[in-house]
Amino acid sequence: MDKMSRKITQTTKRMGSRKNYTKNNFILYLFLAPAVVLVLIFNYIPMYGVTIAFKDFSPIKGIMGSEWVGFTHFISFLQSPNFQQIFMNTIKLSGFELLIGFPIPIILAIMVNQLRRAKVKKNIQLIIYAPYFLSTVVIAGMLFIYLSPAGPVNGILTLFMDEPISFMTDPSYFRSIFIASGIWQAAGFSSIIYVAALSNVDPQLHDAATIDGASLLQRIIHIDLQALKPTIAVLFILAIGGIMGVGFEKAYLLQTDMNLPASEIIDTYVYKRGLQAGDWSFGAAVGLFNSVISLVLLITANTVVKKLNGETLY
């Protein structure tokens, strides 16, 4: 487009938009209004409400009327005998989940990508996505059924052993059960994004590399993994940011009185102390402690990944 015609288009554009300028904008702000109002109420007000972490909140006095107590609740959480256990449980559960669960969808996508026949590929994908659509309650329910002392897993195990294993009440199994079931449920679905990224790889690259004598593994490492790198980076940052928010819904369901030494994590503790026991300020303080760590982790991960390969989240 030459200079002249560009200028004409720009002028017409401006004329067109000037005509309804105020009216247009009014409508657009009206479009924004519902989302702004809801976010203001349900996201921003609780941010203000988090000040009760520094107060002795009593429902009668309200947030404004309650007295300031500074960092008392934080200190009492840090000094409480359970602190170390709960904190380490949270870190371990999500750390191992990330360490084991993060690479699996990538490997799965590379494996699926090797399938030549489109129909087989599609059907396999369809099947491995299925568990993603089950609810957390159903997953937990299935675990209780399968792993109970009289359940099918122990039915097989007792062929080789004398005693059934009480998986759900023994703390030493909790993390493995949590992580393995998480992988079972989500690995297939999480691989979608990587499969999509791999489908953008030019097949000619693979052909050329093969002609140059590259083996399958070499091509996977130097072509496929390279193509996945940006996606991996972004998802990794997000995963790090989510470490402290490790699946409350599932952990809470899988908790039994007996496995608490491994299964009590910060979020479940906040729920029990804050909501169930009515220790509002203490619960809010523990929750805030958790969010601050998440934020720090997210920012750190973002900075590190940015330094490593220039891919960032924001």
Partner: peptide, 22 residues
Amino acid sequence: LFMIFFIVTMFFNGGMIPTYLL
């Protein structure tokens, strides 16, 4: 300004207890 207003909520939230009280 609106974008910032929205994006902030991706990084900070009040958490379970303040939301419940609200």
